[in-house]
């Protein structure tokens, strides 16, 4: 998998970066805004936490510029839990990423949930030792981010909505793009790379593997155990849950239930059992009723 990087330093770093992403498979990564929430997430069985000052649904409400979180707040969470700690930077803001790397976070999310810092460019992620995850809506976007060095891809969905429809759309788009590749003749792949705006050699690797060459997780709108199971059955190898847990009435039980649902995603009896014990999920907002300007998924390209 790392063989498409010709520089041996980049190839070795990439193996370590993707290696951590592999360890996070089959789990749930939870957004947390303070130490208490981080402990609830770890106690529930989260494989990692995403430390940020406001969950996406509150970012929507607050408006204004949304930036990297305060390092002191992230440090407090690093000190409180033993699971990996992730944090977000604005799209293209490599100086925020340098700060988070110096802080020793385990993964950086170059995220459309924050206000973009660059209208044209994403971060060149091979410059960093710390691995990056990036969002995508389709195969071309996923392959561009991998080309820049992303070690994990997540479908964007629509963060903070509580509505799973965009996560489903984006996952199906990626899967559809990969199936198309597999049906193509070799002499059609360069034209497809041009059409998608995707790096050719990574597109070829994706065709050969029949899947993205890095782990593919799902994010944006997952609010219930059933949502998590749906995304896992559609091919997500792990799920991110942002607002869905701590904007609900019952964060602890809901976090535990979603962890069970991600592991036992194809076992309806277990899904039934863990869904029984829950209260009200986050209220949310239907994506189809949002203005285009309200949507976060269109940030980045």
């Amino acid at each position: 998998m790392e063989t498409f990087w010709t520089d041996p330093r980049i190839a070795e770093d990439f193996r370590h970066k993707v290696g951590l992403a592999e360890m996070l498979k089959g789990g749930v990564i939870m957004d947390v805004t303070n130490v208490e929430q981080a402990k609830i997430a770890q106690e529930a069985g989260a494989v990692a936490v995403m430390a940020l000052e406001r969950i996406p649904s509150d970012i929507r409400k607050a408006g204004g510029i949304s930036r990297m979180s305060q390092p002191a707040m992230i440090r407090a969470i690093q000190d409180a839990v033993s699971i990996p700690v992730m944090a977000k930077v604005r799209i293209g803001h490599f100086a925020e990423a340098q700060i988070l790397q110096a802080l020793g976070v385990d993964f950086i999310d170059e995220s459309e949930v924050l206000t973009p810092a660059d209208n044209a460019n994403h971060i060149y992620k091979h410059d960093f030792k710390v691995p990056f995850v990036c969002g995508c809506r389709n195969l071309g976007e996923a392959l561009r981010r991998i080309g820049e060095g992303a070690a994990m891809i997540r479908t964007k969905g629509e963060a903070g909505s509580g509505d799973v429809v965009e996560a489903v759309t984006h996952m199906r788009e990626v899967n559809d793009g990969i199936r198309r590749l597999q049906l193509m003749r070799t002499d059609e792949l360069m034209a497809e790379a041009k059409r998608l705006g995707a790096p050719y050699h990574i597109l070829v690797a994706t065709k050969e593997l029949g899947k993205l060459p890095v782990p593919n997780f799902a994010a944006g709108g997952i609010a219930t155990p059933a949502d998590a199971a749906l995304m896992r059955q559609l091919g997500a190898e792990t799920v991110f849950v942002g607002s869905g847990i701590f904007a609900s009435d019952d964060p602890g039980p809901r976090a535990r239930a979603i962890v069970q649902a991600s592991t036992h995603f194809d076992d309806p009896q277990t899904l039934l059992q863990v869904s029984m014990e829950l209260g009200e999920p986050m209220r949310g907002r239907a994506v189809n009723e949002m203005d285009e300007s309200e949507k976060m998924a269109g940030r980045g390209w």
Binding site: E22, M23, G26, G27, G45, V47, I83, P84, V259, Q260
Partner: peptide, 14 residues
Amino acid sequence: PGGESTTLSRLIDS
């Protein structure tokens, strides 16, 4: 396998 030990520990019990 490799993974997160806190998560594995809970899932083994549940």
